[in-house]
Amino acid sequence: MSRPVRVSPQELRQTLIEAIVEVAPDVDPTTIDPCEDLAEQLALDSVDMLATLVSVNERTGIEIPERDYPKLATLDDAVAYLVHAAVRQVDAAARQEEDSSI
């Protein structure tokens, strides 16, 4: 997996919406309530959710372990999760580089 780069919350939100619409093109992004459960309001099943998060991972390089999926249940929660995960992963990668250069 490519190393994650720092991206803004706005960009991550956009990426997530694009991934949702790729899996479920019937979704009108303007109607998504950012605080409501995504699967419930958009009638996404577990296979859709899996495909969406796999696509987000492919687009951003951010690792999303399976057991963290409930933390990405709403749009706002998902963006917050991705922001933190990206920061964590970038920092971890930087530390690793520092370590290996010593």
């Binding site: 479920a24 093109p25 019937d26 099943d45 296979v47």
Partner: peptide
């Protein structure tokens, strides 16, 4: 459009 059309009619 076809994917969306099918999902709206048939469900996910």
């Amino acid at each position: 459009e076809l994917l969306a059309f099918a999902r709206r009619r048939l469900g996910s």
